[in-house]
Structures are given as structure tokens and as C-alpha cells.
Design a protein around this nucleic acid. Sequence first.
DNA 1: TTGTATGCGTTATCAT
DNA 2: ATGATAACGCATACAA
Lengths: 336, 336
Amino acid sequence: MAGINIKQLAEALNLSTSTISRAFRNNSGIKQVTKDLILAKAKELNYQPNHYASSLRDQKSKTIAIIVPELANNYFSQAIHGIEKVAKGHGYNILIYATEDDFEKEVDVITHLHNGRAEGIIISVSGEAVNHNYLHEFGAKRLPMVQFDRVYEDIDTPKIITDDYESSFKATEHLIDKGCKRIAFLVVQNDLSIGKVRERGYVDALKKHGIAVDESLVINCSNSYEENDPIIKHALQNLHIDGIFASVERLAFATYYACYDLNINIPLDLKIISFSSLEIAPLLNPSLTTVTQPAVEIGSLAAKLLFDILNGKGEQKEAKNKVVLASKIIYRTSTN
Amino acid sequence: MAGINIKQLAEALNLSTSTISRAFRNNSGIKQVTKDLILAKAKELNYQPNHYASSLRDQKSKTIAIIVPELANNYFSQAIHGIEKVAKGHGYNILIYATEDDFEKEVDVITHLHNGRAEGIIISVSGEAVNHNYLHEFGAKRLPMVQFDRVYEDIDTPKIITDDYESSFKATEHLIDKGCKRIAFLVVQNDLSIGKVRERGYVDALKKHGIAVDESLVINCSNSYEENDPIIKHALQNLHIDGIFASVERLAFATYYACYDLNINIPLDLKIISFSSLEIAPLLNPSLTTVTQPAVEIGSLAAKLLFDILNGKGEQKEAKNKVVLASKIIYRTSTN
DNA sequence: TTGTATGCGTTATCAT
DNA sequence: ATGATAACGCATACAA
């Protein structure tokens, strides 16, 4: 541990520890001169109130936790960036955890956080979970939480999501408008709410336009390129697909690679649209038509809602228990 | 704060707090039966040792901090991912901070961390700094630190960097091999060590091949696309450039956009090579030749070195005070 | 305005 | 094997 403690600083100044403490807390009850003196000496001796002692005493940690499935991911990086900005503004620190889509890790982390380490949690859930009642076991002591993007619908916390149904509907419709007849939907199996909702948008758009829904065109993928590559190639070669709607960025990339390998021309032979936060989508070959979620904004909004709760403003949760932000479809060459 | 405390659990079991504590620490000095009993009850009542009390008592926080210039960045996301994996393995938590290239924020964060919050720091420095002697002011109490990528050469900590000089030399040479005569070097001003070293590699390669070094071809950019766009366009239109070596990914992207706008054909009119951690570089139009640093590995190695220090294994720092990892040049169409 | 004393929850030391 | 107690560093209630 670093630095000197309050007692040593008090001695150095011939003051009591309470006076020192006051210099760092209340502006009340302390003479400005004394305060200046203390702060000056503190700086000189490199004193800082010990965070753990303060937290223990105050029962608060000035820390929030972010839990996401993965870190090396455009969408989550941007969301974290948004959260970080807001947290910094509130003088809060951020603990970060990656679950790697592993439900057990998620449970571990959340449980662990209930030891006082964090005051609140911002989470995008692992998605593998079937039963997440463990959250209820914390009872009234459960940490304030805000969910975003991948959420547990039945867990009552504020949620920030995007208009995935509408976006997916429009995305699919866009492909139909462009003449696609056999549109595949690429999804990662364990995506809970997200995957389901996006699939509904896809299905409903097909129905609206009188296109028969073919179950085999809903293609389950994983997060591993090695696993996805053969799956996608098989689909491209055997299912007479002329359009692809990827529910997740990495599946669009895998499709691009597959098309390169198979000499399939995008957009002539196959049109692609994908959910994606990639900022350089215009630089792809061909440029990728995307459904782009406002990732940074989602992050900062999630943080704001969490701080509303922490500051007691959020008791009337009902009002904004679920915030739906709009994604933007950006039309580019891959669907031209 | 959540949960019950050790005292309540002790009462519930008619045991002393010391016994409870033992159940969670030493396996020594406690009967297995008692221990099982305690752990069971703890689970039932949702007890967890309070992290702040433990930390205060033990003077250690099981936490390390990561400080990076930005979060929404491929390279840093991957590095953080690498760090996270290792930290998790050691049972450590991660605090994360973005300096946004602001030296003051860096000083603030580092100073703040010396209040006991973290046991060590992994940092890629802001780069704006001229004088970073503030690090010396912490004296012997300075937190263990490991630097990576952007480092302060004069601060004595382990450093993980890549072979930037050699890579830059080779990158430039590659452009020369491909017939480029007027090669520009794009750099972000405030990149300290990084930018300088990469520039040296560029200059030396030119010299070796008897190409006159033209100062005006070293082009200072910023991190803002809006600022860079006109700078790059001006260069492309007026400096008769036929090759570009971008020291940072985003400058290559800006160049791509500029070329699209100006109808400059890559690689016919202009060849581009860039430092980049972009995994989908092959999907760009045209696919981008990159100098790719092993970002994830850099992160995990940095974490390992930090834990070596924390565990006292790292006292013989000299040995591996500076680790240089190799980057890989991957040849693609942009320099074909 | 400043000082004294107590407790936040835990764990290590020293008993028993 | 278990229990009593002191101490980690700080901030507040209360006293002066």
C-alpha cells in the first residue's frame, strides 16, 4: 500500500485526524486557512485518503461494474467508452469483466460483486442462461443494475435496447425490395432476446411480402470463425440463397470470406445486410449495408440510468424501465 | 451495501467471527465439519466477506488498473482482452481508465490509484507528456507498473513493445520494392516513442535505398477525422505521393476515404501500408497491407510481468525489463 | 473551529 | 479447534 495515513499527516501538522478528514470532505466546519494548510501538506507528503478505509466507513465504493460477453468487439468497446465517459463525470471508477458467453462466469462475477466491491452493475448478459433466478436470491440486497442490448426480460431493471424488431423487419424488407427471394438469417445460437427478436422481424417481413418462411434458412452459427466457415459455405452452396441478413457483425464478415473463397459476387449473386458497429463499413469490399446501433449512446444512457438509481432519482423506475433507441440502416453496396 | 456481515453469520451459527473467518481463509485450524457448516449457512444467507474490510485489513486489493489512451480502438481492446484473461486467472479484478490522450487525466488517474485502490498499473501512456517526473514523486511508494506500446523510456518499469523500428523499416522498404518513389509517412503528433521510432525506420529505409528524405512528406495528423481529411487530401493532391506508410490504423482509413473522394486508385496510383490490428483488413477495398502487432499477446504478457512483480518474482527486473515482440507484416492488395 | 472517541467488517495474534 | 481482541484508516457524533 502506498502513502502515509491520516494519522501521520495529522501529526505532521499538529492537528487531529478529524480536522484532516474534514479538509477532504465537508467544506463545513473548517477554516479555509486550515484547509489550505492541510491540502498543501498533503500534497507535499503525498497523502491521499485510503480508498478502502473510506469505503468501509461510508459503505460505498464509488465504483460500478461493467459485465459484457466480450471485450474485443466493436459494439462493446464503444458501449464501454460511453459508460466510461459518464462514470468519469460522476467521479466513479469502473471495474470490467468479460464473461466470454459463459453463464457460470456471469454468475460468479455478479455474486462476487455483491461483496461491496461495486455499487451498481451495467450488464449485457451472457445469453447462454436458461434459468437466471440466481439474481433473485440476492433479494432486497441485490445491487442496482441496468441491462443493455442482451437482456433478461424477466429481470426487473432498466433496460436499454434498440428497436431490433423494426430494424430487422426493415433490413429484411430492404433485401426483398432489392429482389432477393431466398433470404437467409444468420444468428448466433446463444443470443437470447436479441436473436429471437431479430428473427421475428425477419420472419414477419418475409410473411408480409408473401415469401414462404423456410426454416432451413435460419442458420445457427457460433462465435468461432472455424466453426462458422463450413456452415456458411454449405448454406451458400446448397440453399440457393440470394440474400443474407446477419444478426451479428462477425457473421457478415464470415460470409464475406466465404464469398471470396467461393467466388460469389456481392451484391450480384448475393446481397448482405448486417447488424454492425463497424465504423469503417464503407471501406469494405464491397461496402457493407449495416444496421448500426448507437453503441456509445447506449453505453452512456445505461450509465446515466444507473446513476439515477444510485442517486435515488430512479425509484420511479416504471417510467423509463425500458428505453428503446433507434438503430440506423445505412445503405451501401453490399445490397445494391 | 449488500449482504450480512461476519458477525451476523457468527450469531446465526453460534460461533465466533474468527471461526467464520477461518472458514473462508486458511484451511488450517478448523474442523472440516465446522467449515462445511459455515460455508453452507453462508450460501444460504448470502454472506460474502466484505471486500473493503478485507482489503483494509490486508492492505491489498486484488485489483490492478489498466490505463489506455482510448477504449474504442482495436489495438487497445485486444490488449485489454489479453490482460483480462491473465488477471482473471490470478483472481484479480480490473479497473479501467481512458485518458483520451490527455496528460492531465493520466496524472490524475495515476495519482488517484495510489490511494490503495490498485496494487499495480498497466499503462500505455498518453503521449502528450513532456515531463513525467510526477511519477518519481511517489518515491518508494510508487505502485508497480508495466508499460506497453506507448512508453516513457526514462521511467524504469518493465516495458512491452514491438519491433517498431524494424517493422517500419521493412514496411517502407516494401513500398520501395513495389516501385514507390515518393513515400509519405503519416503520424499522429503526440505519439511519443512510437511515432519517433517508426519515423526513424521510415527515414533509414529511404536512405538505404538512396531516396532523398523530404521533410514535407512526414505528415502530422491528429486523432480527428475532420482534421485529418483536409490534411491528407492536400498531401495527396500536391505532393506527388505514390506511397503511404501510416503509423496508425486510423490514418490509413482516412487515406482510404480520401482516395475514394479524389478518385485515386489504390494500389495503382497510391500504395498503402499501415500499422493496424484490424482483423478484417483482408475485407477492405482494397485489402490493406498491415504491420500487425500481437495485441492480445502484448496484453497478456504485460499482465504476466505485473503479476511477477506483485508476487515478488520480478525483483530481478533487469532481465526482462524490456520485452520486444515481433510484429508481422501481412502483404495484401493495397501495396500490390 | 477543532478534538476525542467509536465503529465500519475483517483477520491475525494470542489465548483457551 | 475455537474464541476474544486489537488493528487496518477513515469519518462522524459528540464534546469542548
